[in-house]
Write a protein that binds this DNA or RNA. Sequence first.
RNA 1: GCCGGCGUGGCGAAAUGGCAGACGCGACAGACUCAAAAUCUGUUUUACGCAAGUAAGUGUCGGUUCGAGUCCGACCGCCGGCACCA
Length: 807
Amino acid sequence: MPFEPLQQEPRIQQRWMEAAAFKAPGAADLKPGDRTFYMLVMLPYPSGRIHMGHVRNYTLGDVVARFRRMRGDKVMNPLGWDSFGMPAENAAIKHGIHPAVWTKANIQEMKGQIQKMGISYDWDREIATCLPEYYRWNQWFFLKMWERGDVFRAMRNVNWCEALGTVLANEQVVDGKDERTGHPVVQKQLEQYFFAITKYADELLAGHDQLDWPENVKAMQRHWIGKSVGARLTFDLADGNQVQVFTTRLDTLFGVTFMALSTEHPFIVEAAKTDPGLQAFCDQVAAMSREDRLMSDIKLGYRSKLEAIHPFTGEKVPIFAANYVLMDYGTGAVMGVPAHDERDHAFAGKYGLPIPQVIESMDPWEPGILVNSGAFTGMTSEAAVEAMVEKLGGRAEKAVTFKLKDWGLSRQRYWGTPIPTIHCPDCGVVPEKAENLPVLLPEDVEFKGVGASPLTTSRSFLDCACPKCGKPSRRETDTMDTFVDSSWYWMRYLDPKNTEAPFARPEAEAWSPVDLYIGGIEHATMHLIYARYFYKIMRDLGLAPGDEPFTKLICQGMVLKDGFKMSKSKGNIVDPDEVIARYGADALRLFMIFAAPIEKEIDWTGFEGIEGATRFLRRATRMVEDHVPCKDPVPAKDQLTAEEKTLLVKVHQTLHKVTDDLSHRYQFNTLVSSLMEMANALADLPADAPHRGPVMQHALEVFTLMLSPAAPHLAEALWESLGHEGFCMHAAWPVAETSWLTADEVTVVVQVNGKVRGRIQVPAQATEEERRAAALACPEAQAHLAGKEIVKVVVPPGGKLVSVVVK
RNA sequence: GCCGGCGUGGCGAAAUGGCAGACGCGACAGACUCAAAAUCUGUUUUACGCAAGUAAGUGUCGGUUCGAGUCCGACCGCCGGCACCA
């Protein structure tokens, strides 16, 4: 049987499919004591073709899934399609293809490509988020969350293009213009729906402790959630109004010499009406794009006619509108303490405001001891905060602020889940009745890319009756952010055909949480925060057990070409399909896991790497070809030659290491190198070894089983050649025998003053004392010991080394 | 600026405090061949040496340890994320 992947792989895939070899059992089919393993990869967007990033992601996941299956675990390894979103709608506008048609064709194409890779997905559990059977549950969740008060409506800015009469996504806006037509884009307030994710901010932060996730992902989430502990403080204004500020440094209160409000703060907006200069300043700030605001670190302000009164000194403090104060963080107002805040310092310098010092410390921006602070002088910053809150009474309270914003889920687009609400002239916004779900996307729509969302062109969709009073009403035309789709999809895999609920509780209990989730680092914040949030909602709805959905997370590195991200526009794409057509799936899979550690980038500089993988697979094939299947048992240890024993030790040591790499360390590149080392050892067994038949048979069997997760097609072929029936992928993972983990004789390294001076062979069962004596007697060491006084001899646990210290 | 991570041959990398550079790629030499491809064998950190060998060596400096690529401290460099967050 020569190595002919192009002929063999499709045949083996066919056999797997016919045998339903990848099927995952439902909760009812699991027996007590069954170990389960849920292996999840991030579901793809059906853009048209798979790319190397997909190949890497799915290969890594498949290696784990296949290994676990062989270990005897019940394995859940599903895939689906994140199939709502803008590209489909853009294709409709550009080419006149309905998004559903475009999406379906892409799914078919990509599914075929993925199947050619031999990934062991249970395709019976496949889902597509754009199908009503799926998105009806998005609507169901929305209604449940509405009931619980987790949904609210509020005004929020959108990117509005007057010329097109449409809302644009952030990615479509470049330099304040529509990237397609160049028409200007402005901010416009629209009333939209929000999920109150900030309710869970503290729990989302605390949950990290129980997660086996990369440190950088946790750090990114921590930063994104952005918890700040401080105080809210109310200032009286000279005109009798009150304004509230948030500060993390209440202790610096005596250093306040001005107050800065966002140009969008209600008081500033009001004051600008009678102050043309202020109005002009606000307009100027509003006209700056987000990038410009970030680029220029120049602090700009305009002194309004408003004044605040310092709560302790009673002094009047000027109020500025300032470009560095954000309306959507804290209260949109800050107390300016130029001596102890870098930004306030810059601002005060520019506008000639006094800079009184009120804290003594090494670094002016850090806490310390209070000075010039009335009764609080001499206190530590920490104590002063407590004392001031006390003294200020109802005027101040300790407070926490988050950077995390509530999740705006409204999109003014067609290709998404319709938000299940109705606008009644009498009752206002009313949720649709649960029994009327799904609210289906209508077919009678036009895609023009101009004007309001296509949904507003469908009479059949718009016209409805109010669920409360029955009056003729208008259906909501906003659709949901596609992040909603991907925030619970992995739970739907567990029960994909359920028509009564998103999934049944017993299925969730059987499989959740996910044991290992592999995907790209680009989802570190948005997707992985939304998914954690949704899981807590599912928990609180009584649907899901536990608190966190993904126990372990691995973010795989990107696949680059000559140092750059592969992209259509750069024209540097290496198409996985073409690689498979030339070298086969096994070679590509093997290369993907061997090329670099999982979280590092792989640079595809050429085909040398994959040719190396092919060489190895061919070599493995040849070893089996040259071997005559042998049913004799391996003779007892004392009958074997030294070379035969050496080989068997290598076999079991490799097995031990590979098992560890796959079950705990998730280090797949060393899995491959271990197999290569073992292949080299196999080649070293003399052709005339007396027990070559049984020893080789055993070694090749273990080798083939270990190869199976990485190169499953070839493993099946080799398994058959070795005289086995049934699938290699269903054979039991072998167990390393302790008696074969150490050779009869082991090498002991002799160090003198930390330098390696010699190596000696000792019997494996030699005692520490014998090792020590043998080491001191070894001639190479003797040369360095002569005439010196031995201070100490250390034999560390394991006894692989003797360390001699001399003076 | 803040947060996280990483610095090892020509290259991808390995080394779970215990023989630095496994394994692979590339390169060089040889075998087979009329020849090529494929395959096989050998060499491939640096310096000195014909060699056996000796010395140095994991970004830099210091520390802990019998022993440090690995742990601790300071610095240098690179990558990623966030970035006027009060």
